[in-house]
Amino acid sequence: MLEFFTRLNDHNLPYPDTIHPIIVHFVIAMVLFAFICDVIGYFTSNHRLFEVSWWNMFLATIAIFVAIIFGQFEAGLAKPYALAKSVLSMHTLIGWSLSGIIAAITAWRYVIRLRNPYRLPIAYLGMGLVLAVIVGMQVYLGDQLVWVYGLHTVPVVEAVKDGILR
């Protein structure tokens, strides 16, 4: 059984496909949906949307750390070539930064929720917009790693193993 976990497949992974993108798509969806719920709740005075937003941010805070763990593991197995390294480094830096930003915003949201669950300060919505923009930048970098540089795709993995890409 240990042999199964130590062997790498055609994608240079010990399991069938990348897990990081699966988890990170949940984080992206939860953060953006939380922001949308906050904006709609703010303008319609529908405080139930604030509760939806709170739980989305809470779960996103947990999920981003799981996504980072798998991202770090899979990035190490990717054996990135020179052209992809700068994008991967920036993606990693922003990912770790986002974990702290999301945790801080969620903590702020918790305090807001305790004080008055029926209102949100406009500053919180502004920070939500900033967070949405940072998440958008991170999505762009992640898309580049897969669709432009082909990390963990079979042709790129083979090219790196054969020494064609360095």
Rank of each mutant, 00 (worst) to 15 (best):
residue 1 M to E: 10
residue 51 E to V: 14
residue 63 A to P: 03
residue 93 L to Q: 10
residue 105 I to L: 14
residue 25 H to C: 06
residue 34 A to C: 01
residue 59 L to A: 13
residue 162 D to C: 07
residue 138 Q to P: 09
residue 104 A to F: 06
residue 87 V to E: 00
residue 28 I to D: 01
residue 14 P to V: 14
residue 9 N to W: 03
residue 156 V to K: 00
residue 67 A to W: 01
residue 54 W to I: 12
residue 7 R to A: 13
residue 20 H to C: 10
residue 115 R to D: 15
residue 125 L to H: 11
residue 39 V to M: 13
residue 28 I to S: 00
residue 146 V to S: 10
residue 147 W to P: 04
residue 157 V to Y: 01
residue 44 T to Q: 00
residue 112 I to E: 10
residue 152 H to W: 02
residue 7 R to S: 14
residue 57 M to R: 13
residue 19 I to D: 03
residue 17 D to Q: 12
residue 166 R to L: 01
residue 1 M to I: 11
residue 3 E to V: 04
residue 51 E to L: 14
residue 61 T to V: 09
residue 88 L to Q: 10
residue 156 V to W: 01
residue 41 G to Q: 11
residue 25 H to V: 01
residue 67 A to G: 15
residue 120 L to R: 09
residue 70 F to L: 08
residue 97 S to A: 09
residue 44 T to Y: 02
residue 99 S to N: 10
residue 164 I to P: 10
residue 102 I to R: 09
residue 71 G to E: 00
residue 35 F to A: 12
residue 121 P to A: 09
residue 53 S to D: 00
residue 43 F to C: 07
residue 122 I to W: 09
residue 22 I to G: 04
residue 69 I to E: 12
residue 129 L to G: 15
residue 138 Q to W: 08
residue 138 Q to D: 13
residue 87 V to H: 00
residue 69 I to P: 05
residue 85 K to R: 06
residue 83 L to A: 07
residue 135 V to I: 15
residue 149 Y to E: 09
residue 80 P to L: 05
residue 2 L to S: 07
residue 72 Q to E: 02
residue 128 G to Y: 00
residue 129 L to F: 13
residue 64 I to Y: 00
residue 113 R to Q: 08
residue 20 H to D: 07
residue 140 Y to V: 13
residue 144 Q to T: 08
residue 84 A to K: 02
residue 76 G to C: 03
residue 162 D to S: 14
residue 109 R to I: 03
residue 97 S to D: 02
residue 96 W to Y: 11
residue 163 G to K: 06
residue 89 S to G: 13
residue 137 M to L: 14
residue 64 I to H: 01
residue 49 L to T: 08
residue 120 L to D: 09
residue 124 Y to I: 10
residue 153 T to I: 02
residue 3 E to Y: 02
residue 163 G to I: 06
residue 40 I to C: 03
residue 21 P to W: 10
residue 70 F to N: 01
residue 19 I to C: 05
residue 57 M to F: 15
residue 137 M to S: 12
residue 23 I to H: 07
residue 159 A to D: 15
residue 80 P to C: 05
residue 71 G to R: 00
residue 130 V to Q: 07
residue 50 F to G: 04
residue 38 D to C: 04
residue 164 I to E: 15
residue 148 V to M: 12
residue 72 Q to H: 02
residue 57 M to D: 11
